[in-house]
Simulated assay, not measured.
Amino acid sequence: MTTYFITRHTGALQWAAAHDIHFDIHLEHLLSLDKLQAGDVIIGTLPINMIYQINQLGVRYLHLSLKIPPHLRGVELDIEQLKVCQATLEEFVVTKISDIET
């Protein structure tokens, strides 16, 4: 089992270190699912369709959840701002109901 932390944000890495969040591999982006195996764990803020795909592989997903006020949206957050935004990890499993033809 491998734990991946997917983030391009330095503040998120600092927050993880300050909270003793263990991960084996840090990647700025998850470009391929090829190396993922059932039982692996991904920590990050991935798009919902990608979360569905990794869940289908048997990979757990821990979302770095934040309560971001409007004035901080789109801002590179540092560790102190992440604390203010109540950063926490929450596990999600995504189920796709159907595909819609457009």
Rank of each mutant, 00 (worst) to 15 (best):
H71Q: 12
V59L: 02
I68S: 04
I21P: 08
T45C: 13
D24T: 07
L33A: 04
V59F: 07
H22W: 08
L77P: 02
I68L: 10
T45M: 03
E80N: 11
R73E: 15
L33R: 04
K67N: 15
Q81W: 02
I21D: 06
L57Y: 06
Y61M: 01
H22I: 06
Q56A: 09
A17W: 04
I79F: 05
S32Q: 09
E76R: 13
V41A: 06
V93C: 10
P47D: 06
Y61C: 01
K83R: 13
T88R: 15
L30H: 06
N49G: 01
A87V: 10
L72E: 06
I51W: 02
L36G: 04
Y52N: 09
E28L: 05
Q37E: 14
D40W: 06
G74F: 10
V94A: 09
L82T: 07
H63E: 14
V41W: 07
E76P: 00
V75H: 13
Y61P: 00
L66F: 05
A17Q: 15
L33E: 09
D40I: 03
I54E: 03
I97V: 14
D78H: 07
G58Q: 03
Q81D: 14
H63Q: 11
G39E: 13
I51L: 05
S65M: 07
L62N: 13
F92E: 07
L72S: 02
E90Q: 13
Q14V: 08
H22V: 08
D78K: 07
S98D: 15
D78N: 15
L66K: 08
Q81Y: 00
T95L: 12
L27A: 08
I97E: 14
S98K: 15
I43T: 01
D40Y: 04
G58C: 11
K83I: 10
K96V: 07
L72G: 01
D20L: 14
H19I: 01
F23L: 10
C85M: 07
V59Y: 09
E80W: 01
P69C: 04
L82V: 05
Q56W: 00
T45S: 01
L62G: 05
T45L: 10
E90N: 08
H19V: 03
E91H: 09
N55W: 08
L30V: 01
L72K: 11
E91F: 08
P70V: 04
H19N: 15
L66M: 12
L64H: 09
C85P: 02
E76N: 11
R60P: 00
H71V: 10
V93F: 13
L77N: 02
I79E: 15
L62V: 00
Q37W: 06
I42Q: 01
H63N: 15
I42D: 03
I51Y: 05
H22G: 02
M50E: 13
D20K: 15
E90W: 00
D40F: 03
L72N: 03
P47M: 00
L30R: 00
L30E: 10
M50W: 02
V41F: 02
E80A: 14
K96H: 05
Q86L: 10
L57S: 01
E91D: 09
Q37S: 11
H22P: 02
I21C: 08
L27T: 01
T88N: 12
A38L: 09
I97S: 07
G74H: 13
D78W: 08
L89Y: 03
S32D: 12
V84F: 14
L30G: 10
H29K: 14
L30F: 09
L46G: 01
L82N: 04
K67L: 14
Q81M: 13
I97R: 10
